[in-house]
């Protein structure tokens, strides 16, 4: 009996996979999900474990928001200053305001700022990663495991479109985070005002795609081009999560336009 039950469950799972509605046109993403007004409209391979690149920072800023105090300052550690990839060029010992590190992490996807926030929250990155994985378990992210705070490739650093959608929903409940993500540019500086940094949003949709109001982009060689995009246009809210794309912005613009157009046919 139990054996038959397992077979039936397996069949249902296979059928669900086979009949999940993909978009009616070709996109390059390995996995994606499109929600219109909080209702899933199209999806593809949403539980596949893939490298999430800088979308990891959604978890980082959500953990920060649990203890957020914009007045606090952080002294940049040597480990944070050594961060690679996208970075501000922070120096070890330099003092930054938490709110500026948050802005740099979200708008510029700066890994040194992100690392500094992890240090600030948990003392160092390894302890912060334990916290990230603890929250992932608590939030039911079954296909997510982190090995670093900012999204560097690692065999054990993975997530799924489904789990990223869960994180995106939690971010959507944080107006302060959304406000930062919607900024196309922003100037920040270190605490003593001796250096300034011009931030330009890495999310190319901001200011270019009608109604794009935020979320996060990411890229690593293993992850490909990743994106969580939030669009609010004429009362319609569209959330797009896509992992491992090669033609991200054009794909995203097409998907978002298509989703908006389709929302009027419902």
């Amino acid at each position: 009996m139990r054996w038959w039950f397992l077979i039936c469950c397996g069949c249902l799972s296979v059928i669900a996979t086979a009949t999940a509605a993909p978009l009616p046109f070709q996109v390059q993403a390995s996995a994606y999900l499109v929600e219109v007004d909080h209702r899933i409209r199209w999806q593809h391979q949403i539980n596949q474990r893939l490298a999430p690149a800088s979308l990891t920072k959604l978890m980082t800023v959500l953990l920060l928001s649990e203890h957020y105090d914009s007045r606090q300052t952080v002294t940049i550690s040597a480990a944070a200053a050594r961060e690679t990839g996208s970075r501000l060029g922070l120096r070890a010992g330099e003092v930054m305001r938490v709110e500026d590190l948050l802005a740099a992490s979200l708008i510029n996807s700066a890994n040194d700022a992100c690392h500094a926030l992890a240090d600030h929250i948990a003392g160092d990155q390894s302890r912060f990663v334990r916290l990230m994985n603890q929250r992932a378990r608590e939030w039911g992210l079954q296909n997510t495991h982190f090995t670093n705070a900012c999204g560097h490739d690692d065999v054990q650093h993975y997530s799924s479109v489904q789990d990223m959608t869960t994180l995106a929903h939690k971010v959507m409940a944080q107006p302060a985070l959304l406000e930062l993500m919607a900024r196309r540019t922003l100037q920040i500086g270190n605490a003593d005002g001796t250096r300034h940094f011009d931030l330009t949003n890495k999310n190319a949709l901001i200011g270019r795609h009608e109604g794009a109001v935020g979320m996060k982009s990411g890229y690593t060689p293993k992850a490909g081009k990743c994106l969580v995009a939030l669009v609010q246009r004429a009362g319609v809210t569209i959330l797009l999560v896509m992992l491992h794309d090669t033609n991200r912005w054009w794909d995203a613009a097409d998907i978002l336009d298509f989703a908006y157009a389709q929302s009027h046919h419902d």
């Binding site: 390059q28 990839g85 490909g224 991200r248 912005w249 054009w250 097409d254």
Partner: peptide, 23 residues
């Protein structure tokens, strides 16, 4: 709307372009 074979756009990190996993 969409077209194919657009060149790689900018990424957050300065590594080489990612491999295609066209689906």
């Amino acid at each position: 709307g969409k077209w194919k074979n657009a060149p790689a756009d900018e990424g957050e990190q300065s590594d080489n372009g990612g491999s295609s996993a066209g689906s």
